[in-house]
Amino acid sequence: MNLLKSEFRKLIYTRSFYGYIAGALFLALLSSIPAAFSVNALKAELSGSSLMDPQMVDGVYAKATGGYLFALIMGIAIMGNEFQNGQAISTFLATPKRIKVLYSKLIVAAGAGIIMMLISTLLGFVGAYFGLSFYPHAKVESSTFLDLIITAVVSGAVLAVMGVAIGALVRNVKIAMGGAVIWLQVVEKLIVLFWITGGKFLPSGLIVGMMNVRITLRSQQRYLNLSTGSFFGPGISIALLLLYAAIFAGVGSWVSLRRDID
């Protein structure tokens, strides 16, 4: 409990933590408000009846989880700043059993990631609702809200844990954060677009999978795939994300235990 208290203090005392939450809120709104307008603009390309189709409305609400990037960045900061500031010296002097420190960081990061994602997703939900209010014929399924909450909880915890592991693996925090942003916002999106078979295994594909959104496009574009019909369902998506978190946490722990503190 002492270590959890200490790690919790490190988080809430640091101003950047509130910046990450603000970033997540901003990204969730930025993703969710225009989503209904985008879907409506693309209706000629879409299957079903555009926003009359509950799957399309789910797709709009799924954008409410758009803040997950900041859960990953926060996780990186929780671990990476420790080494960057030299704070690791006092941390490991107080608790030389490093595995305990790492577990505490993982627990605090997961908790903070969940809280961050719940807040940002709820705001994103309001944003999506606002966008959809311009289309009174839009229909929402009753399970959508529950799916969103589950997605927020799992993605917040998993991405924050992955962030802590990345922070342990990459010594330079700026490179780690920059790499994470480029990976999630550019590389993953390109992979999903051009190689859906691989893309569905990636965190962003699995987050869409958790929402159980099934969108099919009528697009004639041969090489682009904007459909989500072949993504995994919620069960497999959650299991794979948790597996990724476990692998990352394991590798991060192994590296931290072996590293000399400079």
Partner: peptide
């Protein structure tokens, strides 16, 4: 122990840094 002058988060006050370390022990 004192190892060099590191070990503190430069963005936090001296008191907050000590409270973090105190809590862990």
């Amino acid at each position: 122990a004192v190892i060099e002058t590191g070990g503190f988060n430069p963005s936090l006050s001296g008191l907050k840094n000590l409270r973090i370390i105190a809590a862990s022990a």
